[in-house]
Design a protein around this nucleic acid. Structure first.
Lengths: 225, 225
DNA sequence: TCAAAAGTGTTAGATTTACACCCATGA
DNA sequence: TCATGGGTGTAAATCTAACACTTTTGA
């Protein structure tokens, strides 16, 4: 059946997902207790094995769908992790992906059924194997990404206030920024549109709601690399 | 023997190396004709299969050593490539690494024995499978890296002139930079040390030779992230 | 003596940072 | 009426980019 490469060893390949959410002005990630031996009961990222008939991206998307019921989640590869002993059971190489979702899109019932929970990205417990490493690398990549690309919208509802956008940015880069300077920068981004709508849930005065215009963004020549 | 994960499929895992060199003011990469079916004879990166008793990094380092006879090559992971049909033979997932070497360190006899050659990074032919994709991604990563980290020294001899350093920088980022501005920036980097030595092979007047001081670099608090 | 590469400062413009007060509203 | 978060402009400092001529020396 196998015609080529007969003499080479195969390995188990998994994907592990670092799923980011933003809630209560905190960056959070979704983790659970490992349901499998070895390591059963340890904190762990959600993952799954790669099948022979699916690409790595497909495996990650499928895994994300299994867990969240959501399609077309924003997702980027973090890298491959392949220490020999990273899994105490047997040799497993894992490709990590980070994903961004809007916490509100994730049915809380489904979340509980899978036994995963949102923990603050700054307070992640010690996890199984090299999962903490995966998380740091993912955070690092996301931090670099957010400085040049509009990924915030993947974590926010379709309508959001500038304060929300700023808090998210601060949570991701890990430092506070000046309100006026931040808003000045946003004004220059034509693809962040002010709507007529007002959010009154977070303040008495009410804050203008903004939305991300993907079309305008895609047409912006600044972003044609 | 295998106690866990029995029900999951395994895949062949390979590493592919994008080996950069700098010669004649040109950024080059090392490629050869594929020696294996399927795809025998097509242009290809140099790669190898990952063994069960070695990490991905070890597999890449071993592959680099096999080809070049060099140890401790600077090397960074590019990412995992895993389309289902990327290899027409059977399912193979590959982890790409880029590596930087000083062309002069590579014995030309050994190079010929392996049937690989240096081609300009801007003139890479169509290659086997997704290897061109790997090269673009590697170039992109390296370009980002060189803007904040001193990786040039991996591609240059221990002593080099500022003009060489500038030409290399230009080749990597793909655009020319102003000589005076470039040298001003270099002056601010304490870890690039001027020596008393003069290179007279490239000009009549002679150019001062510089060296990279790793110790100074490692102690520079700017680079503690 | 001249061609070829090395070496060297200044200025204008752009970008970034720091900073403080008034507004609207519901409780 | 007051506490809370929303909203706004200016000036200094820093960084970046543009620019041209002199030096040395081997051929």
């Amino acid at each position: 059946m196998t015609m080529f490469y007969q003499e080479f060893q195969k390995v188990l390949l998994s994907v592990d997902c670092i799923i980011f959410g933003f809630d209560n002005n905190k960056l959070k990630i979704l983790i659970g207790r490992r349901q499998m031996d070895p390591g059963r009961g340890e904190w762990s990222l959600y993952g799954g094995f790669v099948r022979n008939d699916e690409s790595l991206d497909d495996a990650a998307a499928r895994t994300l769908y299994e867990l969240t019921g959501l399609h077309k989640i924003y997702m980027r590869q973090v890298g491959a992790f392949g220490s020999v002993d990273r899994d105490p059971g047997e040799r497993v190489v894992s490709v990590a992906y980070y994903a961004l979702i809007n916490v509100k899109d994730y049915d809380d019932r489904l979340r509980q059924e899978h036994g995963v929970e949102w923990v603050e990205a700054d307070k992640v417990p010690a996890m199984f194997s090299d999962h903490n490493e995966m998380v740091s690398k993912a955070r690092q990549l996301m931090k670099e990404k957010i400085k040049t690309r509009p990924i915030s919208f993947q974590l926010l509802p379709p309508l959001f206030t500038l304060t929300q956008l700023q808090r998210l940015y601060e949570a991701v880069v890990g430092e506070e920024v000046d309100k006026r300077n931040f808003r000045k920068r946003i004004k220059d981004m034509d693809y962040i549109e002010k709507t007529e709508l007002i959010d009154k849930t977070h303040s008495k005065r009410g804050a203008a709601l903004y939305r991300f215009n993907k079309k305008t963004y895609d047409e912006d020549p600044t972003f044609k690399l």
